[in-house]
Simulated scan of single mutants.
Amino acid sequence: MYERTSKPRRLPPLPTAVLVTLLCALFAALMGAGGYAMTQQQRAPQARPAQPTTAPTRLNVLNWNICGEAGGLRGQRGFCPNRNRPDLTVAEIKAMVAERHADVVTLQEVCGGAPGSHLTQLEAALEPGWTVMRARGTRPDGASECRGSLTGELGVAVAVRGTIVSSVSGNTLTDDPSQSDGQVSPLLCVDVEGWSHRICTTHLLPSNDKRGAEQVTRIAERISPDGKPYVLTGDFNRNSKSLDLVPLTTTLTECKALTQDEETTHHAWDSKGGKHVYRTLDHVFVSRGRDGTKAALSGCGVDRSRMDTTPNEEDTPPNGKSDHAPVYVTVRINR
């Protein structure tokens, strides 16, 4: 027979007051732990989302041949009003940057690469965040040193409100030095961090030089081997309807104001004929986007207030800063 198991002994019931005290203590402990966990979670440092790098949807572009290395005496061919005062030219550029809210400044006939030169002073005058790049050019005699009291080397330059991450420059004249006599007419292109468009500038030979057509062909072939969209500025020494520019004008977009005769960008004085000569030589071209979308331009025009329009005579003071007028264009980038 199995032995009978005795009934378990029951503990004596706790007094009601004690039981209530224990339950309250347990509840407080649980709430305290939960409250601490919630507080810790709220105070935990939150990871900040990465800020996306946004490219501009429009670029305000300024282009100007400052005639900074031209002739120095009034009455002589190629006279430049501010030739020996690079500080005055830089002050004009800085003022235009503020007036036009410029993101890009491209320059021709500019001196750089030495203390006191146009570009050294420009770098100091621009606000932080700008980057300046130059490309060396030469005169027909092969010399690149800026003449007279000027310092540095002759060439073209690009300044951007951003960080230049790469640049390339090359001679638009023949690759055979024996045929160019050492003359360099550069094309300078820069890529800017976060920008969809490459920025390029150049200065072609005068229109009576047959090598100009070859220059245009080389530019069209070499400016964007990777297919990146670009803005091309410069002194082309030709109007938009010139046959020499066909390799560019048939594929690129230009502000209509620069295709009209009344919007001239260059003034010369014909001393023999006693007459003014106005031409449209400076241009801003924009390529199609990667998707084939045609570029949209707005706010484009010519600042003729800074172009000397007086007769180049000894007794006539100039009324401008260069024989070229600055050209300004807003490029609306389709992204």
Rank of each mutant, 00 (worst) to 15 (best):
T249E: 04
A17D: 08
A125P: 03
D226V: 03
C200S: 10
R279M: 03
E99I: 02
L252N: 03
V18R: 01
L258P: 04
V160I: 14
D270S: 09
H283Y: 06
V329P: 04
G162F: 04
L297N: 09
N334L: 09
L119P: 00
R9I: 04
E127H: 06
T330V: 12
D315Y: 05
N237F: 08
L188K: 04
T233V: 01
I223K: 10
G212L: 08
R136S: 07
T316E: 15
L245A: 01
L119F: 00
V110E: 12
G35H: 05
E314F: 00
G75V: 07
Q42V: 11
R198T: 14
S271D: 13
N319K: 15
R58D: 11
V90L: 06
G155P: 09
S144M: 14
L205C: 00
A124G: 12
L297E: 05
R147I: 01
R304V: 05
T106H: 03
Y2R: 13
D176S: 10
P56Q: 13
F285W: 06
Y328Q: 05
F79P: 05
V184W: 10
S178C: 08
P13N: 06
R290F: 00
D244T: 06
R83F: 02
Q121H: 03
E99D: 12
R306H: 08
R74K: 15
A29N: 08
A44Y: 04
L150T: 00
L243G: 06
Y328S: 01
A325P: 01
R4H: 14
G78D: 15
T310L: 13
T251N: 15
K228H: 07
D323G: 07
R136D: 11
Q108A: 12
Q108D: 11
G320H: 06
S180I: 00
L173E: 08
L122R: 02
N171G: 03
E99L: 09
C111N: 15
A124F: 00
H266G: 10
V90I: 14
R218Y: 07
Q51M: 15
H118R: 10
Q260C: 01
R218W: 11
R161L: 13
D282F: 02
